[in-house]
């Protein structure tokens, strides 16, 4: 029953569910302190980037959305063993809400660059995904704290160093996964000549060649 619409198959659901679990586990792992970074460093956001980069935009976004559902229903899966709807209302909740967008952006870029994916491209995709959560994250900080939007928007300074490190790591995992265990279909086959450089939206048509 392979219909041509990009429907979710049983395997998609399994990948989405298990990657959500993977993101949860990253929140449970004790933090390994990085010598040169003073801020608390959770690798949970790394899971968000990997969800996009390994599963692709669509499934990656669903995996992170599922993770948020688990947070909302009160599982202690955020760093420090906390959870519950309250965590989706606190000052930094804006970042959490936009996790799916972050995964989607990373996944979309990785899909687009799939054939010529390099570490650098993976890195750019991961950085783009990390930065995608900033606007709403900062807006929500401003709303909940009464800080002016401009002041709040400076908090990227705190997040960016960690995000760059995580993006570098995510890129190396994404590129290795592409070689070892590719989960994304190559872009539609008809445009076989490599000279065609026009980027086509990779999300659609999962039809077999």
């Amino acid at each position: 029953m392979a219909d041509r619409h990009p429907r979710t198959t049983a395997k998609d659901v399994a990948l989405i569910a298990l990657f959500a679990a993977f993101i949860c586990v990253l929140g449970l792992t004790p933090r390994i302190a990085l010598p040169f970074l003073p801020t608390p460093f959770t690798i949970q956001t790394l899971g968000v980037l990997l969800a996009g980069g390994v599963l692709g935009a669509h499934r990656g976004a669903w995996a992170t959305a599922l993770f948020l559902v688990l947070v909302a229903v009160g599982l202690p899966v955020l760093p420090g063993g906390v959870g519950g709807i309250g965590m989706l209302a606190g000052p930094t909740a804006g970042f959490l809400w936009t996790y799916p967008a972050g995964a989607w952006v990373t996944g979309m870029l990785v899909e687009r660059w799939w054939r010529k994916l390099s570490w650098l491209r993976g890195f750019v995709a991961a950085v783009a995904g990390s930065v995608a959560v900033y606007p709403l994250g900062h807006a929500w900080i401003a709303v909940t704290t009464g800080m002016s939007a401009t002041t709040a928007s400076w908090s990227w300074v705190v997040y960016l160093p960690g995000d760059l490190i995580k993006s570098a790591l995510a890129a190396s995992v994404i590129v290795t996964m592409k070689r070892a265990y590719p989960l994304l279909d190559p872009p539609p086959a008809p445009t076989a000549p490599a000279s065609r450089n026009e980027p086509r939206p990779a999300g659609g048509a999962k039809a077999a060649p």
Binding site: T9, A10, K11, D12, V13, A14, L15, A17, L18, F19, A21, F22, V25, I43, L46, L50, V54, L169, V173, T176, M177, A180, Y181, L183
Partner: peptide
């Protein structure tokens, strides 16, 4: 640490997907 964990997650999903089908 991450790479083997991601790979085993994806492998498990393979099996789960088949079981679901």
């Amino acid at each position: 640490f991450l790479l083997p964990l991601v790979i085993s997650t994806v492998r498990m999903a393979d099996g789960v997907g088949e079981a679901l089908t």
